[in-house]
Amino acid sequence: MCVGYMMEAMMIRSHFLHSPLSILSSYSSSSSSSSSSSRLQLSSSCSVSCSLMDTHKQGRSKFMEFPFVSGPHKNIMLDLISTLEDRFQSHLLPCSLPPDVQHYITNSGTSQVSLHIRPGNTDSPMDFVMGSWVHAELPTGGSLDITSLSAYLNSSNDAPNFVFELIRSSPTMLILVLDLPPRKDLVLWPDYLKTFYEDTKLDTHRQALEKVNEVQPYITSSLFIRTVASPTAIFVRIQTENDGGERMDEIIRNDIEPISKQVLGIWLDHCACAKRELGEEDRAYVRKRDGVIRNKTIEVDLGTSFPRLFGPEAANRILEAIKEYFTV
């Protein structure tokens, strides 16, 4: 994010929802009293499951609004989300974060966040998919709006992850982050560099975007972020004339959207669906690396950004919920 690539850090693994099928499998009708008791337990468990599903639907509905950004900005988020979820729909579980973590607004109404995480099931190569938006009114006027979509694989696959983020601090200023961050050292594993970055020609998309007149390279001040990014990462700053954002929306629609869809397509075809046979030693390496990066991101990024945006009490509640799932 503009406040430290913050939303990329919200990579978490959610709990499985309690399945009504598991309840039904233990149902017994050996006697009328035990049957009655089982029916009561089933009704109670189903009520809990239905309540969780309602929470998921409400949180998802709020998340998909993207209420503070322009039409083209919203459209690119919805398009990327639907493309990713359509490919892995049967492998993703519903979001089960607490309601006040799925959507939180400060008492003053000046800042709010919507967070939606869908973990992968036991047969999925996906660890989780995370989408979010943040809106914060600035003391100087205007607002900071950040929309983000990330997808992370589990240790059954060592292919890169996917990160997309738009950071808009005014109608005429935007920062784009689009990357497939590596999960192996590219010096020690040169074949990894060739397979996922050279053969897929990922760098051509960065080169194409930088030909747009208003686009300039953006260098984050975080050395940590620079370390974990790929050599083909797109970090750009886009500044347009003071025209109310019309030119910016044109760039989002005509340049950012097609390039982002192409990069997501590469990730889906060549990374998420890659057949990578990993031995236990390689899996252990990937788990360790993933864990270090996630923990460091919370420590360096969210731990300082969230209190500033939402106050210490709310920030602690959201961070504790994230930490509970943020485990490799």
Rank of each mutant, 00 (worst) to 15 (best):
E137K: 15
S143D: 11
R226I: 03
W133M: 07
E165K: 04
R168L: 05
T195Q: 12
L209H: 05
L193H: 12
P139M: 08
F224H: 12
T147P: 00
S170A: 12
N157K: 05
L149Y: 01
A208T: 13
E210P: 01
L176E: 01
Q216P: 00
D158S: 14
V212F: 10
E210A: 11
K194N: 11
E214C: 11
S169L: 03
V187D: 08
T227P: 01
P181H: 06
L166Q: 03
S230E: 04
A208N: 13
D185W: 11
N213R: 15
T200H: 02
P217T: 07
E198Y: 08
T220F: 02
A136N: 11
A229M: 14
W133R: 08
Y197I: 09
Q207K: 15
L176I: 04
W133N: 07
L193Y: 13
Y152M: 10
V134G: 02
V228P: 02
L144K: 12
T220R: 06
D145S: 13
P171M: 11
R206H: 04
N161H: 09
S230H: 07
R206T: 09
A208E: 13
S222G: 08
K201D: 08
T140S: 13
D191H: 15
T204G: 01
Q216V: 02
D158F: 05
L144I: 12
Q216Y: 01
H205L: 14
P231F: 05
F196S: 06
Y152Q: 12
L223R: 14
L144D: 05
N213H: 15
Q216F: 00
R168P: 00
D199V: 01
R168E: 03
M173S: 11
H135L: 08
S150P: 00
A151H: 06
A208V: 04
I225P: 00
P190T: 13
P231K: 09
W189N: 15
T204A: 09
E210D: 05
R226K: 15
L178C: 08
Y197Q: 07
L138G: 05
N154C: 07
H135K: 10
P182Q: 09
T204L: 11
S148P: 00
S221G: 11
L138I: 05
L174F: 03
E198H: 07
N154Y: 02
W189K: 15
T200M: 06
F224K: 06
T147S: 12
V215P: 02
D185H: 14
E210T: 13
T147G: 03
T172A: 09
L209E: 02
A136W: 00
V228D: 05
S143Q: 06
L166T: 03
L193N: 08
L144H: 14
Y197N: 04
I167Y: 01
V163T: 08
R226V: 03
I225W: 06
K194M: 03
T204K: 14
